[in-house]
Design a binder for these strands. Structure first.
Length: 799
RNA sequence: GGGCAAGUGGUGGAAUGGCAUACACGAAGGACUUAAAAUCCUUUGGCCGCAAGGUCGUGAGGGUUCAACUCCCUCCUUGCCCACCA
């Protein structure tokens, strides 16, 4: 018979809620600790990924609580979004009813896991008390010119009938439904995140406790590149075409330039040329293709000669101007200089159209090849050749020298380019925050006045799944009066992308009921920034970047005095089964609820932490669950057989464990912390435990198996919650060993182990080692060449 | 194609320059039991050997070092992120 987990877990969940032990209040006496896990999308049931994410967070929160920190550990729901709308279409229900139903299922499941949330702070982004402040933030951005409308070619998902951010297009398909993305021109709302690009990049340096790879991904996404804008003058005219390049070292190898078909100068250039008719045909064809198609690698690069030439400013060479679909107007200047020998795309294009090539950087591993014999472009490092006064320089050095020289000559300008695009937030969808603007025939675009917020999302709307946003069809919503002139006007029907909602929810948690602003300045001043944030690696770019952007915006509004929202970040690995990610479509889901029923939440928590370190992938194994259950039962039985005092051997083991577990918890190494708790338990089974030893073990295990340990704690006669017991301290005096084992190697190979007094002198140790019979045979009377001694650990004799 | 991870027993994993395989699962054997479950104890990387012991061994190959799973170089495999970004 195992311990009665069902009764125990229920008992303590009720007790914790009654005693409000997780309710957080600012307190000047204690140090604050804000621990946050990425809040879930209410899809219906919690899955193992949630269980893992929230268990990791809960252990950290409870550990800090026992350490005496004032812990804020809130939970809420990222409740707006497309699945609710798709469910409404499919199940003939309403998105808000569906969403609330899902939240109603998930909340008790989270409670059953025993997570230490302050449920009084629960929030849901689809509540008007939340999205009102989305609208407030939007209006502030609009005031400051950070929100703007732009007609632009956007990615259009024909299935979802919505626009997608560039970031949401996955391999030419919609990231949710994978339909092929088309191009469509629409008036869209954008946020000028690009205004913050320097700060977003620079402040990555402050994030010393973020994983390296997340920093690298953010940095790549912002994509700062130093380059040169080179001015190519037309043959026989003073007009110039600016071209941006990150490889100014290859300028002497530029043998033609290429314009995007949309380039404003194209029509002028081809006018009256024999190629005009054919070129126009090509341009028309290219304009029909979406960027996604043009950007795909499997489509052949097409292009056409314009009949015109420019002058290469470094050597006054005449080079032809081409038009090609692989050059996009949106990037750089819409024109490139082509260096076929040192850029693979240019190389393929040049080969296909029989354009000239010249090598200007020597591959150190091979002879300078005849360009005709090259099979691919050489894009690596090397020494400049065919580059006039720059010959012989390493190309990285030449990059700088050529840039400086050309800038001085007035033929180019050193420039910085960024990859980061402005953030498209418009969605032609119902289930999101209405964008608070009104269109008046007389006054134009008018912001909804602050005192009229929130612009309520109407409860009823027709969901057919066709023909754009349901909001367009709700007359009571659509028709409004102009706030300026009171004449009939129309509301904006676009809603905000849900990333907007999640870009500042961590601030709202500080004062979830606040109604004078998005958050109470003082409360946020006390709790923020988040000390530890935990979530999936899939949010490494978008969510984290947008949250950082919003934080900087709030700082600029004077609402907060810090610039980064999350001090420490942990990205947990995925949960796999049979080597594959657990997912509904694969049908390899294990329902957490069934595991709780069979083994209890404490066992599930223990297993999920023990099976792998938090950052790596976790392979689900039902037998591992059995093992976790066995361990808890083993600890449970210790209380049946307590001694009055523990022997020295066990006390030493206890203090060693306290040291190890304390360090491991700090570093989120829960798997090894559990391993040492198991070792302590094994030691207890060897020698028998005293009450004090078992109590200490219970405290150390309590963040992982909280219900279990509370019960054990109470059985041992304690009246107050174990989470107020304080974290145990270890005594170095107990860790000192009298005798230690020294490893003896001969020529780096393990040959013997000798036991010596811990305070042995080097001389004595050396004598003892050389006198050892085994070592003598290995030395074969040869004199040691070298004698390496690592104190307290190891000796290596070299002969 | 680029960037970043990772690769260790039958399995999950431990060790981040100093005893490779902690801890657990699984397996084998034993104790208890009429029996089973549960529990407790023992063994458990490969090869040679009755044993003592030896020897090989952390994806492959090279290097640095008294000493390499750990650091460096080249390559292979897998995963994630990104990609006509000039």
């Amino acid at each position: 018979m195992g311990y009665p987990f069902k009764e125990i877990e229920q008992k303590w969940q009720i007790n914790w809620e009654k005693e409000k032990i997780f309710s957080a209040q600012p307190s000047q006496g204690k140090k604050k600790y804000y621990l946050l896990e990425m809040f879930p999308y209410p899809s219906g049931k919690i899955h193992m990924g949630h269980v893992r994410n929230y268990t990791i967070g809960d252990v950290a929160a409870r550990f800090k609580m026992i350490m005496g920190f004032n812990v804020l550990h809130p939970m809420g729901f990222d409740a707006f979004g497309q699945p609710a709308e798709n469910a409404a279409i499919k199940n003939k229900t309403k998105p808000d009813i569906w969403t609330h139903k899902c939240i109603g299922w998930m909340r008790p499941e989270l409670k059953k896991m025993g997570f230490s949330y302050d449920w009084q702070r629960e929030l849901s982004t689809s509540d008007s008390s939340y999205y009102k402040w989305n609208q407030w933030v939007f209006l502030k951005m609009l005031e400051r010119g950070l929100a703007y409308k732009k007609a632009s070619s956007v990615n259009w998902c024909p299935s979802c009938e919505t626009t997608l951010a560039n970031e949401e297009v996955v391999e030419g398909g919609c990231w949710r439904c994978h339909s092929k993305v088309e191009e469509k021109q629409l008036e869209q709302w954008f946020l000028k995140i690009s205004v913050y690009k320097e700060r977003l990049l620079e402040d990555l340096g402050k994030l010393t406790e973020w994983p390296e790879r997340v920093l690298a991904m953010q940095s790549n996404w912002i994509g700062r590149s130093q380059g040169l804008e080179i001015y190519f003058r037309f043959k026989g005219s003073d007009r110039v075409i600016p071209v941006f390049t990150t490889r100014p070292d290859t300028i002497f190898g530029a043998t033609y330039i290429v314009l995007a078909p949309e380039h404003p100068l194209v029509k002028e250039i081809i006018k009256g040329k024999p190629q005009e008719k054919e070129a126009l045909k090509f341009i028309a064809k290219a304009s029909k293709e979406s960027n996604v198609v043009r950007a795909s690698t499997d489509v052949k690069k097409e292009g056409i000669f314009t009949g015109s030439f420019v002058i290469n400013p470094v050597n006054n060479e005449e080079i032809p101007i081409w038009i090609a679909d692989y050059v996009l107007m949106e990037y750089g200047t819409g024109a490139i200089m082509a260096v076929p020998t040192h850029d693979q795309r240019d190389f393929l294009f040049a080969k296909a159209h029989k354009l000239p090539m010249r090598v200007v950087i020597e591959n150190p591993k091979s002879q300078i090849p005849n360009p005709k014999e090259m099979k691919e472009a050489y894009e690596g490092q090397g020494i400049q050749v065919n580059s006039a006064q720059f010959d012989g320089l390493p190309n990285e050095e030449a990059k700088i020298k050529i840039s400086q020289w050309m800038e001085k000559e007035g033929t180019a300008k050193i420039q910085t380019h960024w990859r980061l695009r402005d953030w498209l937030i418009s969605r032609q969808r119902y289930w999101g925050t209405p964008i608070p603007v009104i269109y008046c025939k007389r006054c134009g675009l008018v912001p909804v006045p602050y005192e009229e917020l929130p612009v309520q999302l109407p409860k009823d709307a027709p969901f057919t799944g066709e023909g754009g946003s349901p909001l367009c069809k709700v007359k009571e919503f659509l028709n409004a009066r102009c706030p300026k002139c009171s004449s009939p006007a129309q509301r904006e029907t676009d809603t905000m992308a849900t990333f907007f909602d999640s870009s500042w929810y961590f601030l709202r948690f500080c004062s979830p009921g606040y109604d004078k602003g998005p958050f109470d300045k003082e409360e946020a001043g006390y709790w923020m920034p988040v000390d530890q944030y935990i979530g999936g690696i899939e949010h490494a770019i978008l969510h984290l970047l947008y949250s950082r952007f919003f934080t900087k915006f709030f700082q600029d509004l004077g609402l907060i005095d810090f610039s980064e929202p999350f001090i420490r970040l942990l990205t947990q690995g995925m949960v796999l089964k049979d080597g594959q990610v657990m997912s509904k479509s694969r049908g390899n889901i294990v329902d957490p609820d069934s595991i709780i029923k069979k083994y209890g939440a404490d066992t599930l928590r223990l297993f999920i932490l023990f099976a792998a370190p938090p950052e790596t992938e976790l392979e689900w194994d039902e037998r591992g669950i059995e093992g976790a259950s066995k361990f808890l039962n083993r600890v449970w039985r210790i209380q049946e057989n307590l001694k009055d005092s523990a022997d020295h051997f066990l006390i030493r083991a206890l203090h060693k464990t306290i040291k190890k577990v304390s360090e491991d918890f700090q570093g989120f190494k829960f798997n090894t912390a559990i391993a040492s708790l198991m070792e302590l338990t094994n030691a207890i089974y060897q020698s028998g435990a005293s009450q004090q030893v078992l109590e200490t073990l219970a405290i150390m295990l309590s963040p992982i198996a909280p219900h279990f340990c509370e019960e054990l704690w109470q059985i041992l006669g304690n009246k107050e919650s174990i989470f107020k017991a304080g974290w145990p301290k270890y005594d170095l005096a107990f860790l000192k060993e009298e005798k230690i084992t020294i490893v003896v190697q001969v020529n780096g190979k393990l040959r013997a182990k000798i036991e010596v007094a811990a305070d042995i002198s080097e001389k004595e140790l050396k004598e003892m080692v050389l006198a050892d019979e085994k070592i003598k045979t290995w030395l074969e009377n040869k004199p040691p060449k070298n004698f390496i001694l690592i104190p307290q650990k190891l000796v290596n004799i070299v002969v």
